[in-house]
């Protein structure tokens, strides 16, 4: 996937934080958020941070397998984040409860597998608050 944000920033470009609060399998919300994020970048705006919270952390699961005729939303987020160099944070307290762990969390909790795409970072709610300080807009999807 190529970057959607190669074009120079328009004068009216805004910085957005997106809060994603629903699992990809149980609600339309993360698909809406994904399409919103893609359009946002195509229109020349910036994404300050994606923040995955509650069931939304399942959008960062690298272990999700979808039937061939259905979109793999976590893989689509991963591609978007990588292609555009986005900051993506998965809330740690939501994540470890739902089995979303990276190498550091797996070691800390003595687990035998990792499940979080490396494009996202596992972090705290402080990173949501920090992102808001540097944003012009916040939208949440759940």
């Amino acid at each position: 996937m190529t970057s959607l944000a190669d074009t120079p920033k328009a004068p009216g470009a805004l910085r957005y934080t997106l809060l994603i609060n629903a699992a990809p399998q149980s609600s339309q919300a993360s698909k809406s958020a994904l399409r919103f994020a893609e359009s946002l970048l195509q229109m020349g705006h910036n994404i300050e941070r994606l923040f995955f919270y509650g069931d939304g952390v399942l959008n960062a699961s690298s272990l999700t397998v979808m039937p061939q005729d259905e979109i793999n939303i976590p893989a689509a987020w991963h591609a978007l984040i990588e292609a555009n160099g986005l900051s993506s944070v998965v809330c740690v307290s939501s994540a470890i409860r739902r089995g979303i762990v990276d190498t550091a969390e797996a070691q800390r909790h003595e687990l035998y597998a990792t499940s979080c795409f490396t494009s996202s970072e596992i972090g705290g709610l402080g990173q949501l608050i920090e992102a808001l300080s540097n944003s012009d807009r916040m939208l949440s999807f759940g």
Partner: peptide, 9 residues
């Protein structure tokens, strides 16, 4: 969706 983005801006 682009119109949605425009409204949010």
């Amino acid at each position: 969706t682009r119109g949605f983005v425009a409204l949010s801006a």
